[in-house]
Design a protein around this nucleic acid. Structure first.
Lengths: 212, 212
DNA sequence: TTATTTTTTTACCGAGCGGTACAAAAATGC
DNA sequence: GCATTTTTGTACCGCTCGGTAAAAAAATAA
Protein backbone atom coordinates (compact mmCIF):
# COMPACT_ATOMS: atom_id res chain seq x y z
CA UNK A 1 0.00 0.00 0.00
CA UNK A 2 1.40 3.36 -1.02
CA UNK A 3 0.49 6.14 1.33
CA UNK A 4 0.14 9.60 -0.15
CA UNK A 5 1.26 11.43 2.99
CA UNK A 6 2.83 14.26 0.96
CA UNK A 7 1.96 16.15 -2.17
CA UNK A 8 3.07 14.25 -5.24
CA UNK A 9 5.81 15.68 -7.37
CA UNK A 10 5.29 16.69 -10.95
CA UNK A 11 2.20 17.51 -12.94
CA UNK A 12 -0.89 16.07 -11.22
CA UNK A 13 -2.93 13.45 -13.03
CA UNK A 14 -6.01 15.00 -14.56
CA UNK A 15 -8.30 11.96 -14.33
CA UNK A 16 -9.54 9.59 -11.68
CA UNK A 17 -8.00 6.17 -12.21
CA UNK A 18 -10.90 4.30 -10.61
CA UNK A 19 -13.42 6.06 -12.84
CA UNK A 20 -11.27 5.39 -15.89
CA UNK A 21 -11.07 1.70 -14.94
CA UNK A 22 -14.84 1.53 -14.63
CA UNK A 23 -15.19 2.95 -18.11
CA UNK A 24 -12.63 0.51 -19.49
CA UNK A 25 -14.56 -2.28 -17.77
CA UNK A 26 -17.69 -1.44 -19.75
CA UNK A 27 -15.78 -1.57 -23.03
CA UNK A 28 -14.12 -4.92 -22.30
CA UNK A 29 -17.42 -6.27 -21.03
CA UNK A 30 -19.26 -5.41 -24.23
CA UNK A 31 -16.57 -6.18 -26.80
CA UNK A 32 -14.28 -8.72 -25.17
CA UNK A 33 -10.53 -8.42 -24.84
CA UNK A 34 -9.66 -8.63 -28.52
CA UNK A 35 -12.72 -6.75 -29.72
CA UNK A 36 -11.90 -3.75 -27.55
CA UNK A 37 -9.36 -1.61 -29.38
CA UNK A 38 -7.12 0.91 -27.69
CA UNK A 39 -9.05 3.62 -29.53
CA UNK A 40 -12.30 2.28 -28.05
CA UNK A 41 -10.71 2.26 -24.61
CA UNK A 42 -9.11 5.69 -24.67
CA UNK A 43 -12.28 7.24 -26.07
CA UNK A 44 -14.42 5.71 -23.32
CA UNK A 45 -11.89 6.50 -20.58
CA UNK A 46 -11.53 10.07 -21.88
CA UNK A 47 -7.76 9.91 -21.72
CA UNK A 48 -5.17 9.64 -24.43
CA UNK A 49 -2.96 6.71 -25.19
CA UNK A 50 0.27 7.58 -23.33
CA UNK A 51 -1.74 8.42 -20.21
CA UNK A 52 -3.30 4.97 -20.37
CA UNK A 53 0.08 3.29 -20.67
CA UNK A 54 1.60 5.37 -17.88
CA UNK A 55 -1.26 4.66 -15.48
CA UNK A 56 -2.19 1.06 -16.30
CA UNK A 57 0.55 -0.48 -18.42
CA UNK A 58 -0.20 -2.26 -21.68
CA UNK A 59 -3.54 -3.67 -22.79
CA UNK A 60 -3.15 -6.96 -20.98
CA UNK A 61 -2.14 -5.26 -17.74
CA UNK A 62 -5.12 -2.91 -18.01
CA UNK A 63 -7.40 -5.89 -18.55
CA UNK A 64 -6.11 -7.59 -15.41
CA UNK A 65 -6.79 -4.46 -13.37
CA UNK A 66 -10.26 -4.36 -14.90
CA UNK A 67 -10.81 -8.00 -13.89
CA UNK A 68 -9.86 -7.16 -10.29
CA UNK A 69 -12.31 -4.28 -10.28
CA UNK A 70 -15.00 -6.52 -11.77
CA UNK A 71 -14.53 -9.04 -8.98
CA UNK A 72 -14.65 -6.40 -6.26
CA UNK A 73 -17.54 -4.49 -7.80
CA UNK A 74 -20.22 -5.91 -10.08
CA UNK A 75 -19.39 -9.55 -9.33
CA UNK A 76 -18.83 -9.15 -5.61
CA UNK A 77 -22.12 -10.89 -4.82
CA UNK A 78 -20.35 -14.21 -5.27
CA UNK A 79 -18.15 -13.73 -2.20
CA UNK A 80 -21.14 -12.83 -0.06
CA UNK A 81 -23.19 -15.76 -1.33
CA UNK A 82 -20.57 -18.21 -0.09
CA UNK A 83 -21.09 -16.91 3.43
CA UNK A 84 -24.69 -18.07 3.67
CA UNK A 85 -25.37 -20.56 6.43
CA UNK A 86 -26.65 -23.49 4.39
CA UNK A 87 -25.42 -24.84 1.07
CA UNK A 88 -28.91 -24.45 -0.32
CA UNK A 89 -28.91 -20.77 0.64
CA UNK A 90 -25.45 -20.43 -0.89
CA UNK A 91 -26.51 -21.67 -4.30
CA UNK A 92 -29.85 -19.88 -4.19
CA UNK A 93 -28.18 -16.57 -3.49
CA UNK A 94 -25.39 -17.31 -5.94
CA UNK A 95 -27.87 -17.97 -8.75
CA UNK A 96 -30.12 -15.05 -7.88
CA UNK A 97 -27.21 -12.63 -7.66
CA UNK A 98 -25.76 -13.93 -10.90
CA UNK A 99 -29.04 -13.44 -12.74
CA UNK A 100 -29.13 -9.85 -11.54
CA UNK A 101 -25.53 -9.31 -12.60
CA UNK A 102 -26.01 -10.83 -16.04
CA UNK A 103 -29.06 -8.73 -16.80
CA UNK A 104 -28.15 -5.52 -14.98
CA UNK A 105 -29.42 -2.40 -16.76
CA UNK A 106 -26.28 -0.31 -16.27
CA UNK A 107 -23.80 -2.44 -18.13
CA UNK A 108 -23.55 -4.95 -20.98
CA UNK A 109 -25.33 -8.29 -20.56
CA UNK A 110 -23.43 -11.43 -19.66
CA UNK A 111 -20.32 -12.16 -17.64
CA UNK A 112 -16.93 -10.61 -18.33
CA UNK A 113 -15.13 -13.76 -17.24
CA UNK A 114 -16.98 -15.76 -19.88
CA UNK A 115 -17.14 -13.42 -22.84
CA UNK A 116 -13.85 -11.64 -22.23
CA UNK A 117 -11.83 -14.14 -24.25
CA UNK A 118 -13.56 -17.48 -24.77
CA UNK A 119 -11.91 -18.21 -28.13
CA UNK A 120 -9.38 -15.82 -29.57
CA UNK A 121 -6.34 -15.32 -31.75
CA UNK A 122 -2.76 -16.07 -30.86
CA UNK A 123 -2.15 -12.66 -29.31
CA UNK A 124 -4.78 -13.15 -26.60
CA UNK A 125 -3.84 -16.64 -25.47
CA UNK A 126 -2.44 -15.44 -22.17
CA UNK A 127 -5.60 -13.46 -21.45
CA UNK A 128 -7.73 -16.47 -22.31
CA UNK A 129 -5.79 -18.61 -19.84
CA UNK A 130 -6.09 -15.90 -17.20
CA UNK A 131 -9.88 -15.98 -17.53
CA UNK A 132 -9.91 -19.77 -17.34
CA UNK A 133 -7.89 -19.56 -14.13
CA UNK A 134 -10.30 -17.03 -12.62
CA UNK A 135 -13.33 -19.11 -13.56
CA UNK A 136 -11.64 -22.17 -12.07
CA UNK A 137 -10.94 -20.24 -8.89
CA UNK A 138 -14.63 -19.51 -8.53
CA UNK A 139 -15.54 -23.15 -9.06
CA UNK A 140 -12.94 -24.22 -6.52
CA UNK A 141 -14.24 -21.76 -3.92
CA UNK A 142 -17.74 -23.18 -4.34
CA UNK A 143 -16.47 -26.75 -4.16
CA UNK A 144 -14.67 -26.05 -0.88
CA UNK A 145 -17.80 -24.41 0.50
CA UNK A 146 -19.81 -27.51 -0.40
CA UNK A 147 -17.24 -29.78 1.21
CA UNK A 148 -17.67 -27.75 4.39
CA UNK A 149 -21.42 -28.19 4.04
CA UNK A 150 -20.98 -31.96 3.88
CA UNK A 151 -18.82 -31.91 7.01
CA UNK A 152 -21.58 -29.97 8.74
CA UNK A 153 -24.25 -32.44 7.68
CA UNK A 154 -25.74 -29.78 5.44
CA UNK A 155 -25.33 -32.01 2.39
CA UNK A 156 -25.69 -35.80 2.10
CA UNK A 157 -22.53 -37.73 2.85
CA UNK A 158 -22.64 -39.32 -0.61
CA UNK A 159 -22.95 -35.98 -2.38
CA UNK A 160 -20.13 -35.18 -4.79
CA UNK A 161 -18.95 -31.66 -3.98
CA UNK A 162 -16.87 -31.36 -7.14
CA UNK A 163 -19.70 -32.44 -9.42
CA UNK A 164 -22.25 -30.25 -7.68
CA UNK A 165 -19.94 -27.24 -7.89
CA UNK A 166 -19.28 -28.04 -11.54
CA UNK A 167 -23.01 -28.23 -12.16
CA UNK A 168 -23.80 -24.88 -10.56
CA UNK A 169 -20.90 -23.17 -12.29
CA UNK A 170 -22.00 -24.70 -15.59
CA UNK A 171 -25.49 -23.30 -15.13
CA UNK A 172 -24.03 -19.89 -14.30
CA UNK A 173 -21.81 -19.89 -17.38
CA UNK A 174 -24.71 -21.06 -19.49
CA UNK A 175 -26.88 -18.25 -18.18
CA UNK A 176 -24.10 -15.86 -19.14
CA UNK A 177 -24.29 -17.07 -22.73
CA UNK A 178 -28.07 -16.81 -22.64
CA UNK A 179 -27.86 -13.25 -21.32
CA UNK A 180 -25.35 -12.31 -24.03
CA UNK A 181 -27.95 -13.57 -26.50
CA UNK A 182 -30.68 -11.39 -25.08
CA UNK A 183 -32.32 -13.54 -22.41
CA UNK A 184 -34.32 -11.51 -19.91
CA UNK A 185 -34.04 -11.47 -16.14
CA UNK A 186 -37.34 -13.34 -15.83
CA UNK A 187 -36.28 -16.06 -18.23
CA UNK A 188 -33.05 -16.60 -16.35
CA UNK A 189 -34.88 -16.72 -13.03
CA UNK A 190 -37.04 -19.54 -14.36
CA UNK A 191 -33.91 -21.36 -15.51
CA UNK A 192 -32.34 -20.91 -12.07
CA UNK A 193 -35.49 -22.25 -10.42
CA UNK A 194 -35.35 -25.42 -12.49
CA UNK A 195 -31.63 -25.80 -11.86
CA UNK A 196 -32.27 -25.67 -8.14
CA UNK A 197 -34.72 -28.58 -8.31
CA UNK A 198 -31.86 -31.03 -8.58
CA UNK A 199 -30.19 -29.71 -5.45
CA UNK A 200 -29.89 -32.49 -2.85
CA UNK A 201 -31.84 -32.35 0.40
CA UNK A 202 -29.67 -32.78 3.54
CA UNK A 203 -31.19 -36.08 4.67
CA UNK A 204 -31.80 -37.49 1.22
CA UNK A 205 -29.40 -39.72 -0.68
CA UNK A 206 -28.98 -39.66 -4.43
CA UNK A 207 -27.88 -43.01 -5.75
CA UNK A 208 -25.81 -41.80 -8.67
CA UNK A 209 -23.67 -39.42 -6.63
CA UNK A 210 -20.62 -40.92 -5.04
CA UNK A 211 -17.45 -39.97 -3.24
CA UNK A 212 -15.99 -36.69 -2.08
CA UNK B 1 -29.58 -26.91 -57.50
CA UNK B 2 -26.95 -26.62 -60.19
CA UNK B 3 -26.36 -29.84 -62.08
CA UNK B 4 -22.90 -30.44 -63.44
CA UNK B 5 -24.03 -32.51 -66.43
CA UNK B 6 -21.10 -31.28 -68.55
CA UNK B 7 -17.44 -30.58 -67.98
CA UNK B 8 -16.88 -27.18 -66.49
CA UNK B 9 -15.23 -24.55 -68.57
CA UNK B 10 -11.96 -22.94 -67.63
CA UNK B 11 -9.16 -24.08 -65.39
CA UNK B 12 -10.38 -26.70 -62.94
CA UNK B 13 -10.29 -25.96 -59.24
CA UNK B 14 -7.29 -27.60 -57.65
CA UNK B 15 -8.78 -28.17 -54.19
CA UNK B 16 -11.82 -29.83 -52.68
CA UNK B 17 -14.20 -27.19 -51.35
CA UNK B 18 -15.67 -29.49 -48.72
CA UNK B 19 -12.24 -30.37 -47.38
CA UNK B 20 -11.24 -26.72 -47.38
CA UNK B 21 -14.41 -25.83 -45.46
CA UNK B 22 -13.65 -28.49 -42.87
CA UNK B 23 -10.21 -27.00 -42.37
CA UNK B 24 -11.65 -23.50 -42.06
CA UNK B 25 -14.12 -24.87 -39.54
CA UNK B 26 -11.31 -26.00 -37.28
CA UNK B 27 -9.70 -22.55 -37.38
CA UNK B 28 -12.93 -20.67 -36.58
CA UNK B 29 -13.74 -23.22 -33.91
CA UNK B 30 -10.45 -22.68 -32.12
CA UNK B 31 -10.00 -18.95 -32.58
CA UNK B 32 -13.48 -17.56 -33.05
CA UNK B 33 -14.61 -15.35 -35.91
CA UNK B 34 -12.49 -12.31 -35.11
CA UNK B 35 -9.52 -14.27 -33.84
CA UNK B 36 -9.22 -16.23 -37.07
CA UNK B 37 -7.27 -14.14 -39.57
CA UNK B 38 -7.39 -14.65 -43.31
CA UNK B 39 -3.77 -15.75 -43.12
CA UNK B 40 -4.72 -18.39 -40.54
CA UNK B 41 -7.54 -19.55 -42.77
CA UNK B 42 -5.68 -19.71 -46.07
CA UNK B 43 -2.76 -21.49 -44.42
CA UNK B 44 -5.04 -24.13 -42.90
CA UNK B 45 -7.11 -24.50 -46.07
CA UNK B 46 -3.94 -24.73 -48.19
CA UNK B 47 -5.28 -22.27 -50.72
CA UNK B 48 -4.36 -18.68 -51.40
CA UNK B 49 -6.45 -15.66 -50.77
CA UNK B 50 -8.04 -15.02 -54.18
CA UNK B 51 -9.06 -18.69 -54.37
CA UNK B 52 -10.80 -18.35 -51.04
CA UNK B 53 -12.69 -15.27 -52.15
CA UNK B 54 -13.66 -16.83 -55.48
CA UNK B 55 -14.95 -20.02 -53.88
CA UNK B 56 -16.53 -18.79 -50.63
CA UNK B 57 -16.91 -15.02 -50.80
CA UNK B 58 -15.65 -12.76 -48.04
CA UNK B 59 -14.85 -13.75 -44.46
CA UNK B 60 -18.42 -13.44 -43.22
CA UNK B 61 -19.78 -15.50 -46.11
CA UNK B 62 -17.15 -18.18 -45.49
CA UNK B 63 -18.11 -18.25 -41.83
CA UNK B 64 -21.77 -18.80 -42.67
CA UNK B 65 -20.86 -21.72 -44.93
CA UNK B 66 -18.74 -23.10 -42.11
CA UNK B 67 -21.70 -22.77 -39.74
CA UNK B 68 -23.87 -24.77 -42.14
CA UNK B 69 -21.24 -27.48 -42.34
CA UNK B 70 -20.93 -27.49 -38.56
CA UNK B 71 -24.66 -28.05 -38.20
CA UNK B 72 -24.71 -30.88 -40.75
CA UNK B 73 -21.53 -32.50 -39.49
CA UNK B 74 -20.13 -32.30 -35.97
CA UNK B 75 -23.33 -30.90 -34.45
CA UNK B 76 -25.76 -33.08 -36.36
CA UNK B 77 -26.50 -35.17 -33.27
CA UNK B 78 -28.96 -32.47 -32.19
CA UNK B 79 -31.36 -33.16 -35.05
CA UNK B 80 -31.32 -36.88 -34.33
CA UNK B 81 -31.82 -36.37 -30.60
CA UNK B 82 -35.08 -34.52 -31.24
CA UNK B 83 -36.45 -37.63 -32.95
CA UNK B 84 -36.32 -39.78 -29.83
CA UNK B 85 -39.69 -41.12 -28.72
CA UNK B 86 -39.89 -39.59 -25.24
CA UNK B 87 -38.89 -36.14 -24.06
CA UNK B 88 -36.66 -37.73 -21.46
CA UNK B 89 -34.83 -39.67 -24.16
CA UNK B 90 -34.59 -36.49 -26.20
CA UNK B 91 -32.79 -34.53 -23.51
CA UNK B 92 -30.67 -37.51 -22.43
CA UNK B 93 -29.44 -38.04 -25.95
CA UNK B 94 -29.08 -34.32 -26.51
CA UNK B 95 -26.89 -33.91 -23.45
CA UNK B 96 -24.84 -37.04 -24.10
CA UNK B 97 -24.24 -36.12 -27.72
CA UNK B 98 -23.34 -32.58 -26.75
CA UNK B 99 -20.78 -33.75 -24.20
CA UNK B 100 -19.17 -35.91 -26.87
CA UNK B 101 -19.14 -33.00 -29.30
CA UNK B 102 -17.68 -30.54 -26.81
CA UNK B 103 -14.85 -32.86 -25.84
CA UNK B 104 -14.21 -34.58 -29.16
CA UNK B 105 -10.53 -35.43 -29.68
CA UNK B 106 -10.38 -34.42 -33.36
CA UNK B 107 -11.28 -30.75 -33.03
CA UNK B 108 -11.09 -27.82 -30.59
CA UNK B 109 -13.11 -28.08 -27.36
CA UNK B 110 -16.38 -26.25 -26.92
CA UNK B 111 -19.15 -25.20 -29.27
CA UNK B 112 -18.63 -23.05 -32.35
CA UNK B 113 -22.02 -21.41 -31.93
CA UNK B 114 -21.02 -20.21 -28.47
CA UNK B 115 -17.40 -19.25 -28.85
CA UNK B 116 -17.57 -18.10 -32.46
CA UNK B 117 -18.47 -14.54 -31.52
CA UNK B 118 -19.85 -14.13 -28.00
CA UNK B 119 -18.53 -10.60 -27.51
CA UNK B 120 -16.68 -8.84 -30.30
CA UNK B 121 -15.76 -5.59 -31.94
CA UNK B 122 -17.94 -3.49 -34.20
CA UNK B 123 -16.87 -5.32 -37.35
CA UNK B 124 -18.27 -8.64 -36.18
CA UNK B 125 -21.65 -7.47 -34.94
CA UNK B 126 -23.51 -9.11 -37.81
CA UNK B 127 -21.74 -12.41 -37.16
CA UNK B 128 -22.55 -12.19 -33.47
CA UNK B 129 -26.24 -11.71 -34.27
CA UNK B 130 -26.13 -14.60 -36.72
CA UNK B 131 -24.85 -16.89 -33.96
CA UNK B 132 -27.51 -15.66 -31.56
CA UNK B 133 -30.14 -16.45 -34.18
CA UNK B 134 -28.78 -19.97 -34.68
CA UNK B 135 -28.65 -20.64 -30.95
CA UNK B 136 -32.20 -19.35 -30.63
CA UNK B 137 -33.29 -21.64 -33.46
CA UNK B 138 -31.95 -24.62 -31.52
CA UNK B 139 -33.77 -23.56 -28.39
CA UNK B 140 -36.98 -23.08 -30.34
CA UNK B 141 -36.71 -26.52 -31.93
CA UNK B 142 -36.35 -28.08 -28.49
CA UNK B 143 -39.25 -26.05 -27.11
CA UNK B 144 -41.52 -27.22 -29.92
CA UNK B 145 -40.46 -30.81 -29.33
CA UNK B 146 -41.33 -30.46 -25.65
CA UNK B 147 -44.69 -28.96 -26.49
CA UNK B 148 -45.38 -32.04 -28.60
CA UNK B 149 -44.33 -34.16 -25.64
CA UNK B 150 -46.89 -32.41 -23.47
CA UNK B 151 -49.60 -32.99 -26.05
CA UNK B 152 -48.68 -36.67 -26.03
CA UNK B 153 -48.82 -36.89 -22.24
CA UNK B 154 -45.10 -37.40 -22.17
CA UNK B 155 -44.63 -34.35 -19.95
CA UNK B 156 -46.89 -33.04 -17.16
CA UNK B 157 -49.63 -30.69 -18.32
CA UNK B 158 -48.31 -27.96 -16.02
CA UNK B 159 -44.75 -28.22 -17.35
CA UNK B 160 -43.40 -25.06 -18.95
CA UNK B 161 -41.93 -26.05 -22.31
CA UNK B 162 -40.20 -22.73 -22.83
CA UNK B 163 -38.53 -22.76 -19.42
CA UNK B 164 -37.50 -26.40 -19.70
CA UNK B 165 -36.01 -25.80 -23.14
CA UNK B 166 -34.26 -22.71 -21.82
CA UNK B 167 -32.88 -24.72 -18.94
CA UNK B 168 -31.48 -27.51 -21.13
CA UNK B 169 -30.00 -25.06 -23.61
CA UNK B 170 -28.46 -23.11 -20.74
CA UNK B 171 -26.80 -26.26 -19.42
CA UNK B 172 -25.52 -27.05 -22.91
CA UNK B 173 -24.09 -23.57 -23.36
CA UNK B 174 -22.57 -23.73 -19.90
CA UNK B 175 -20.92 -27.06 -20.69
CA UNK B 176 -19.50 -25.43 -23.79
CA UNK B 177 -17.81 -22.80 -21.65
CA UNK B 178 -16.59 -25.50 -19.29
CA UNK B 179 -15.17 -27.50 -22.18
CA UNK B 180 -13.43 -24.42 -23.56
CA UNK B 181 -11.82 -24.09 -20.14
CA UNK B 182 -10.52 -27.63 -20.17
CA UNK B 183 -13.31 -29.68 -18.57
CA UNK B 184 -13.06 -33.37 -19.38
CA UNK B 185 -15.68 -35.63 -20.90
CA UNK B 186 -16.17 -37.38 -17.56
CA UNK B 187 -16.67 -34.11 -15.69
CA UNK B 188 -19.27 -32.97 -18.17
CA UNK B 189 -21.07 -36.31 -18.01
CA UNK B 190 -21.43 -35.87 -14.26
CA UNK B 191 -22.79 -32.38 -14.81
CA UNK B 192 -25.28 -33.71 -17.36
CA UNK B 193 -26.39 -36.40 -14.92
CA UNK B 194 -27.14 -33.82 -12.24
CA UNK B 195 -28.90 -31.58 -14.75
CA UNK B 196 -31.18 -34.48 -15.68
CA UNK B 197 -32.28 -34.96 -12.08
CA UNK B 198 -34.61 -31.99 -12.35
CA UNK B 199 -36.34 -33.38 -15.42
CA UNK B 200 -40.06 -33.85 -14.73
CA UNK B 201 -41.61 -37.32 -14.61
CA UNK B 202 -44.67 -37.75 -16.91
CA UNK B 203 -47.22 -38.34 -14.17
CA UNK B 204 -45.68 -36.02 -11.62
CA UNK B 205 -46.58 -32.37 -11.15
CA UNK B 206 -44.11 -29.67 -10.18
CA UNK B 207 -45.80 -26.90 -8.27
CA UNK B 208 -43.61 -24.04 -9.47
CA UNK B 209 -43.99 -24.78 -13.20
CA UNK B 210 -46.99 -23.25 -14.85
CA UNK B 211 -48.45 -22.59 -18.25
CA UNK B 212 -47.48 -23.52 -21.79
C1' DT C 1 13.47 32.75 -10.55
C1' DT C 2 15.33 28.24 -12.00
C1' DA C 3 15.69 23.23 -11.77
C1' DT C 4 13.25 18.96 -11.37
C1' DT C 5 9.57 15.77 -11.93
C1' DT C 6 5.51 13.97 -13.85
C1' DT C 7 1.60 14.18 -17.12
C1' DT C 8 -0.34 15.61 -21.29
C1' DT C 9 -0.46 16.24 -26.29
C1' DT C 10 0.67 15.31 -30.93
C1' DA C 11 2.55 12.76 -34.11
C1' DC C 12 4.24 8.73 -35.50
C1' DC C 13 6.05 3.57 -35.86
C1' DG C 14 6.10 -1.25 -37.87
C1' DA C 15 3.01 -4.97 -38.28
C1' DG C 16 -0.98 -7.21 -39.44
C1' DC C 17 -5.68 -6.75 -40.92
C1' DG C 18 -9.44 -7.82 -44.75
C1' DG C 19 -9.70 -7.46 -49.48
C1' DT C 20 -8.29 -7.01 -54.57
C1' DA C 21 -5.78 -6.01 -59.42
C1' DC C 22 -3.35 -8.30 -62.64
C1' DA C 23 -1.21 -11.54 -65.32
C1' DA C 24 0.31 -16.37 -65.89
C1' DA C 25 -1.56 -21.08 -66.04
C1' DA C 26 -4.69 -24.74 -67.23
C1' DA C 27 -8.65 -26.46 -68.77
C1' DT C 28 -12.56 -26.65 -72.88
C1' DG C 29 -14.75 -25.33 -77.60
C1' DC C 30 -14.05 -24.82 -82.22
C1' DG D 1 -3.85 -24.39 -83.79
C1' DC D 2 -6.34 -20.45 -81.38
C1' DA D 3 -9.95 -18.09 -78.67
C1' DT D 4 -12.45 -18.38 -74.37
C1' DT D 5 -13.14 -19.18 -69.58
C1' DT D 6 -11.86 -19.97 -64.97
C1' DT D 7 -8.35 -20.56 -61.32
C1' DT D 8 -3.95 -19.72 -59.68
C1' DG D 9 0.12 -17.05 -57.76
C1' DT D 10 2.15 -12.64 -56.65
C1' DA D 11 2.09 -8.42 -55.27
C1' DC D 12 -0.19 -4.86 -53.49
C1' DC D 13 -4.03 -1.60 -51.46
C1' DG D 14 -5.81 1.46 -47.56
C1' DC D 15 -6.77 0.89 -42.87
C1' DT D 16 -6.47 -0.19 -38.15
C1' DC D 17 -3.96 -2.46 -34.72
C1' DG D 18 -1.03 -2.05 -30.20
C1' DG D 19 2.60 0.74 -28.70
C1' DT D 20 5.97 4.80 -28.26
C1' DA D 21 9.24 9.16 -29.04
C1' DA D 22 9.50 13.79 -28.12
C1' DA D 23 8.24 18.10 -26.58
C1' DA D 24 4.97 21.17 -24.25
C1' DA D 25 2.48 21.85 -19.86
C1' DA D 26 1.75 21.92 -14.92
C1' DA D 27 2.92 20.95 -10.58
C1' DT D 28 6.74 21.15 -6.44
C1' DA D 29 11.54 22.29 -4.44
C1' DA D 30 15.06 25.37 -3.76
Amino acid sequence: MKLKNTKALGRPRSFDTARALDRALLVFWRKGYEGASLSDLTAAMRINRPSLYAAFGDKQSLFRKVLDRYAEGPASHAHRALEERTSRAVVERLLAGTVDLLTGPDHPPGCLLVQGALACGNGAGATRRELIARRDAGETALRLRLQRAKAQGDLPRDANSASLAGYIVTVIHGMSVQAAGGATREELRRVAAIALQSWPTPGESHKKQLGT
